[in-house]
């Protein structure tokens, strides 16, 4: 951490940040917080872990798939339409009964457009759902250690009265560091 520039940003009101060096502790802490009724939390990790996703989203799939489906359908129909309509718009009548709108000949354009627009819509969906590009995330998640070797758990929307209880839950479940909501704590 010596060469890192840690930017100073004011703490978010009502947020408590904790650092977990162990994955199982983090998962236990999320579970304990949920059971205590604290569900407004953000978890940061240097890698994707299914345990975290399971705890927070209960196996609900990401809606990204709808973007993908819409993009692929749009691309495929647009590719075929462009190829067909341009051929009918300027018809070249070729002897031997060759059709103007030829399905085999337009398959490649249709296929490529399906893939292209499916991917572009998926990209748009990803950026939209993740809120990217975003440089305004709360200061608690902007810790350089979270892209390296530890996990972060930030509980948001806490009242001062809840602070000690949440802090205890985090500490009891193996948090290496808990910060936030100290100023009015006494």
């Amino acid at each position: 951490m010596t060469s890192q520039e840690i930017e100073y940003l004011p703490p978010t009101p009502g947020a408590m940040k904790s650092v977990f060096p162990h994955l199982d502790c983090l998962v236990d802490a999320i579970d304990a917080l949920k059971q205590a009724g604290y569900t407004n939390m953000v978890v940061t990790a240097p890698l994707p872990r299914h345990e975290i996703e399971e705890q927070l989203y209960d196996g609900r799939p990401s809606p990204i798939r709808w973007f993908t489906l819409c993009g692929a359908l749009f691309g495929g129909s647009m590719g075929f339409s462009v190829a067909s309509l341009t051929h009918t718009n300027w018809p070249m009548i070729i002897p031997a009964g060759k059709p103007l709108v030829s399905i085999p000949a337009f398959i490649v354009i249709t296929f490529e457009s399906t893939i292209l627009f499916g991917s572009l819509f998926t990209l748009a969906g990803l950026l939209l759902m993740c809120g990217l590009p975003s440089h305004g995330l709360q200061s608690e998640v902007r810790d350089p250690r979270f892209s390296d070797d530890v996990f972060g758990l930030v509980v948001n929307g806490l009242a001062q009265a809840d602070a000690q209880r949440v802090r205890n839950i985090l500490n009891d479940n193996g948090a290496a560091e808990v910060t936030g909501l100290e100023s009015n704590n006494g």
Binding site: T44, L126, C130
Partner: peptide
Amino acid sequence: ALGWRGTDRQWRHYMAA
């Protein structure tokens, strides 16, 4: 990095995409 912070929301949609 587009402001990537590795939050649970980001990773969830990222892995699906």
